[in-house]
Amino acid sequence: MNAFEIRGLTVQYQPGITPLKNLDLDVPNGQFLCVLGPSGQGKSTLLRCLAGLLVPTEGVIRAQGKPVEGPDASRGMVFQQDAIPGWLRVRDNVALGSRSTDEQVAHFIRAVGLEGREKDWPRQLSGGMRKRVAIAAVFANDPDILLMDEPFSSLDHLTRTGLHETVLQLWEETGKTIVFVTHDVDEAITLADRIVIVGRGGVRADVPVTFPRPRGENLRMDVDANLLRAALLESLK
């Protein structure tokens, strides 16, 4: 079964602003899909539709065969902007989800490196740390599908590499479907099973990525990887 079946997806915000036009896409269960695209080409819009936060102007989205009707706990989303409530301490924030368990909460606070900060208010954290709180909260809620909108773009290189490992480990352990939006080609090549480039309203390119895992640094030397990078950069133009 497919995690998502997207047919004829069209979103029009205002007359003249139509970031998505007649987009078709299937996402099989268990796939790690990276969505690449230039700024303002509708990546966040697509993700909001998948989460059920935005009703498409036209078209249908089916998740596990059932039409998407509003957000629920089975599809967790990491937002591009700062969205965590400021009135919950770090621990309570991570435990906000309806499915989260104490065990999972403690595990993911550790996984994103926020041990010892459980009692802090969000205002006492840096921007990157707040992002990590949101990531931990979504993971701890144990959704079937993860939607991540440029989750690591505000983090330093080391933390980001660490979180890449966390996400990949989670993905390999649980076989969740992940739709990961980024504008960083290297990040996409490191993480994805498949890369989709969104532009001018639809899917511009759809590339499978088959390098053996774990990928890490050795991918930088790999000829095929560099060819893929060049090709992706070309189609992003």
Binding site: Q12, Y13, P15, G52, L54, V55, T57, E69, G70, P71
Partner: peptide, 10 residues
């Protein structure tokens, strides 16, 4: 436009 549909359904 979309907002109307959106607010009504979700």
């Amino acid at each position: 436009m979309i907002e109307d549909v959106g607010t009504r359904r979700f």
